[in-house]
């Protein structure tokens, strides 16, 4: 592999990794607070992407308005699902997991019925390519990855610099003590789910102009997110960020060196290795 090819592969991997992170972060955030692995998370990503198509392409809203609507709708959906389903099944992890599979199937089948079988496309908002010393990166991907990293920083701020974040961390640390100290656990759970859904919705929205869209697209996203949060450590924000970038690079360099199919198996193998050797993940706490 030439140095140029390696550099190009690295660039592709880092940008893709940054795009994976948003969806995975929401998943890990929800797991940290509610101990739910939300299988419906990929559908929120899909709905975010489809919403860009509906608001921006079909209804021709300005991009900012479309994104604001997505944030609002994702938050509302998160609150509704937390209140209607998750809260009633507290402490029953198997039922919770299967319920999230059920929600995922419902959203997916309704979307197929509503959007039809034809793939949807969102025309590129920022066409063009940046070339630096022979390494080419499309502007839209670079921009999406940049915004994603800004959102990651914002999440850090929420979790480590606000009262709500403090309550979240308290609950994650020791739910019973936190409750005794007057933390409203239900409210924190609702906020966490809403935040997680917003991140997933935006994650989908940002890739809308990059890929083509269909109601099945959530599956790939959720798979990738699972792998990332298992490797990074369930509940760990920093772990998720690092694992996201690492998986992006492993995928692109692996595909360059061995082919796409082999890279796919490599990613799964990495996840199994982590599960067996260090089940709490690279940065998770046991």
């Amino acid at each position: 592999m030439t140095p140029l090819l390696l550099a190009q592969g690295l660039a592709i991997g880092l940008v893709n990794g940054a795009l994976y992170i948003l969806t995975a972060l929401g998943l890990t955030l929800i797991y940290g607070i509610l101990h739910i692995v939300n299988f419906a998370h990929g559908e929120i990503y899909m709905l975010g992407a489809m919403a860009v198509y509906v608001f921006f392409v079909v209804l021709q809203w300005p991009l900012g308005a479309a994104l604001a609507a997505i944030v609002l709708l994702a938050a509302l959906l998160g609150l509704a699902i937390e209140r209607g389903v998750f809260r009633n099944l507290r402490g029953q992890w198997m039922q919770l997991l299967v319920a999230s599979v059920g929600i995922s199937l419902i959203i997916q089948s309704l979307s197929w019925i509503a959007f039809g079988a034809q793939e949807k496309n969102v025309p590129s908002v920022l066409p063009g390519v940046v070339a630096l010393a022979g390494v080419r990166v499309p502007i839209e991907r670079l921009a999406a990855a940049g915004v994603a990293l800004v959102l990651v920083a914002a999440l850090y701020w929420v979790v480590y610099r606000t009262r709500t974040g403090l309550a979240m961390r308290a609950i994650e640390e020791d739910e019973e003590t936190a409750r005794m100290l007057g933390v409203n656990a239900d409210r924190v759970a609702a906020v966490a789910v809403a935040l997680g859904f917003i991140l997933a919705g935006l994650g989908g929205a940002f890739v809308a102009p990059i890929y083509s869209l269909n109601p099945g697209m959530g599956l790939e996203a959720i798979l990738m997110s699972f792998i990332i949060i298992i490797i990074g450590g369930l509940g760990s924000i920093t772990g998720t960020v690092l694992a996201g970038l690492a998986i992006g690079v492993l995928q692109s360099i692996g595909a360059l060196a061995l082919g796409a199919e082999a890279a796919h198996v490599l990613v799964f193998a990495a996840m199994i290795a982590v599960l067996i050797l260090r089940p709490q993940g690279l940065l998770g706490r046991g």
Binding site: L5, G9, L219, S252, G254, A260, E261, H264
Partner: peptide
């Protein structure tokens, strides 16, 4: 030749190998 996952949407790595 490059064979990829059926639902793949990102072909950059496979394309780089071919374009070489």
């Amino acid at each position: 030749e490059e064979l990829v996952e059926i639902n793949a949407k990102d072909f950059q790595a496979a394309l780089l190998r071919l374009l070489a």
